[in-house]
Design a protein around this nucleic acid. Structure first.
Length: 225
DNA sequence: CCAGACGTTGTT
DNA sequence: GTCTGG
DNA sequence: CCAGACGTTGTT
DNA sequence: GTCTGG
C-alpha cells in the first residue's frame, strides 16, 4: 500500500522529479496494488514525464493477466536474470514518488501496520520498472513494479526487504536507459541510509483498502486519545 | 522437439 | 489453502 | 500489501 | 519472447 498526499502540479514536486507536466492527481491515503500510481519516466525525446500506471507489472508476453501474479515488487538482485523484468531493466526504468511505505507485523486478521516515513520531511523516489502491456483487443496498459533490496537497520526490525530509494543525484543515471547499461544501473541500487526512515505504528483501519480518506493514515497513539 | 513457466512476500 | 478485489 | 470470499439454481 | 524441464 502507498499513501500520496502531494500536489503533483506544485512547483516543488515538479522540480524535484523534473517532469514538465502539471498533472491533476488527487490526494490518496490508501493506494492498493492494481490501482493507478504516479510514475516519472522518460518519453521518446528523453523528456521526463508524469504518468499513471497500474501497480503490478505485466510483462509483454503475458496472454491472460488473470493467470499471472500481480508483480508489485521485483528483487533488485535478480532483475537481470528474470524474464519478467530483464527487458524493463534495460529499457524501462522509472521513479515512483512516495512519502514512505508500509510494513506489517502480526498474524493474518490482526496485522499491525507501520508507516516508514522520512525522519525529516522530504520527498522520496522509489526505483521502478515498467512495461506496456497489450490486451488481446489491442488496448495498451502501462504497468509498473517497485524494486526491493535488503532492509536497512531501521526496517530490519519489521522485515527483511525494503523498497530501493533513489536520491536525486542518481535520477538521471537511473532513467537514462540509452547512456547507462542495466549492469551499471544495478550498481546504483541498495538499502537507504539507516537514519532516513522512522517506523510509526498506524491504526489498523489502514488495513482496509476500501477506505481511502483523510484520517485513515493515523498514528496509533493519537487514535487512543 | 514441445509444453509450460515466467514472481514476491511472509509464514511455517 | 488459495484466489479475488481493493 | 491485507481482507474476505470460497456456490448454484432459479427467480426477479 | 525466452528459458527450463521432460
Amino acid at each position: 500500500m502507498l499513501a500520496l498526499q502531494f500536489d503533483f502540479a506544485s512547483g516543488g514536486v515538479r522540480a524535484y522529479f523534473g517532469y514538465a507536466d502539471k498533472p491533476n492527481f488527487p490526494a490518496r491515503y490508501n493506494i492498493a496494488p492494481t490501482q493507478a500510481i504516479p510514475v516519472v519516466c522518460r518519453d521518446g525525446q528523453g523528456t521526463r514525464r508524469f504518468r499513471l500506471m497500474r501497480w503490478g507489472l505485466l510483462p509483454p508476453f503475458v496472454k491472460d493477466p488473470k493467470r499471472f501474479p500481480t508483480l508489485i515488487n521485483a528483487r533488485s538482485e535478480a532483475v537481470l536474470e528474470k524474464p519478467s523484468f530483464r527487458h524493463a531493466m534495460r529499457r524501462r526504468r522509472c521513479l515512483i514518488p512516495a512519502d514512505g511505505f508500509y510494513e506489517w507485523t502480526g498474524a493474518k486478521g490482526k496485522k499491525r501496520p507501520f508507516h516508514l516515513r522520512p525522519r525529516e520531511p522530504r520527498l522520496i523516489a522509489f526505483a521502478g520498472l515498467y512495461e506496456t502491456w497489450q490486451d488481446p483487443a489491442g488496448g495498451e496498459i502501462d504497468t509498473v513494479t517497485i524494486l526491493t533490496c535488503e532492509a536497512n537497520r531501521t526496517v530490519a526490525a519489521l522485515h527483511d526487504r525494503m523498497p530501493v530509494v533513489i536520491e536525486p543525484e542518481q535520477f538521471e543515471a537511473w532513467l537514462d536507459v540509452e547512456g547507462v547499461s542495466a549492469e551499471e544501473a544495478l550498481a546504483i541500487l541498495g538499502p537507504a541510509a539507516d537514519d532516513l526512515f522512522e517506523a510509526v505504528e498506524m491504526h489498523p483501519k489502514i488495513n482496509d483498502s476500501r477506505k481511502d480518506e483523510p484520517g485513515i493514515q493515523e498514528p496509533l497513539q493519537l487514535s487512543l486519545l
